[in-house]
């Protein structure tokens, strides 16, 4: 069971209040009509799905109903950080690899 810190509420809350919404930092193509089928398919369906550090979007559905981002390990399920929409993660796979050496 995850214990999740909502960056908007400023509190740790139970996982039951949240919904996972998949990979974060995917921006909609600025010119959708100009996209090739390949670009549009990549945007719509293709995902990173890493084994390890993952930046993903979560939705505080039974709380403040805001979307936020999370950096989490997909093997240990450890949550490194949560941060607001529009912000960049401070923990990444590269920073963790660097920190360990």
């Amino acid at each position: 069971m995850l214990h999740i810190y909502c960056p908007y509420c400023g509190e740790n809350r139970d996982q039951d209040e949240f919904k996972a919404k998949g990979e974060a930092h995917i921006s909609r193509p600025l010119d959708p009509m100009g996209c090739t089928d390949q670009q549009w398919g990549d945007y719509m369906f293709f995902r990173k799905n890493p084994r390890g550090v993952h930046h993903e979007m979560w939705y505080h559905v039974a709380g403040c109903r805001k979307f936020f981002n999370m950096t989490r390990d997909t093997v240990t399920y450890r949550i490194y950080e949560t941060y607001k929409m529009g912000e960049q993660p401070s923990v990444t796979a590269e920073s963790l690899a660097g920190g360990q050496s």
């Binding site: 069971m1 995850l2 996982q15 919904k19 996972a20 084994r51 993903e56 997909t74 093997v75 240990t76």
Partner: peptide, 14 residues
């Protein structure tokens, strides 16, 4: 399924 991506071969109690 659990809603989040995971490779841990275990899920959530809820």
């Amino acid at each position: 399924i659990d809603g989040y991506n995971g490779y841990g071969q275990r899920g959530s109690y809820n």
